[in-house]
Design a protein around this nucleic acid. Sequence first.
RNA 1: CAUUUUUGGA
Length: 240
Amino acid sequence: LFTHNVLIHAYCKMGMLERAQSLLREVEVDVVSYNTVIWGFAERELGDLAVGFLSDMIKRGVGFDFVTVNTVIMGLCKKELVQKAELLVDMLCKGGVTLDVVGYNTLIYGYCKIGAISDGVAMLERMKREGIQPDLISYNTLISCFCKNGEMDMAKGLIDELTSKKMELDVVTYTNFIGELCRKRKIGEAFSWYDEMVRSGIVPDVVSISSLIYGLCKHGKFYEAYELFRKLEDMGISPD
RNA sequence: CAUUUUUGGA
């Protein structure tokens, strides 16, 4: 079983979904086998075709779990079908199935992806109501969306909310701001966010530094960009 | 470092 799942996973990673599916039919499987194939569909932007696996699983006596539901939701969200995902969730809800924090985060991502931030924020409120505590990813997802929209004040508002909840920001939180400021060629501000990040003890990674390099290049500061690139190695980060 | 889900750059 374990071996077959490894194989299914490999097929899915290579996009050989029909192979993965035939294995699924032919061998003994469990919930992980199905989750893996559903994930494979989601990765290839075929998430809408994966919804049916839920009923297949039930027919076959394989119970689905949070990961299954979350992965199906992700597949739909990637295709900008978050509304469809919500309908599915509502249906499951009537059957007594609830979402976990990842599921809610995925829906938030789905709304952000179609540019419906207010629905994303509403989802954040809804999860609180349902007793699921939002985590840093919930907030980072919304912050990313606000930043890309140029609504930095809204994004900062969420930072305040995080702070008031005594939740720690991470490198992703900061990189959302750094990245957006770099896109807008506001290099100075980008570096001040970077400095604040380092001051609070967060170690920069390849994405945060690459954002800054991008920003410097966009600003025509090629020499400084190159200098920063050299510093990557000193910081023990390998360029990707 | 042997299997599955959510957030940041290009």
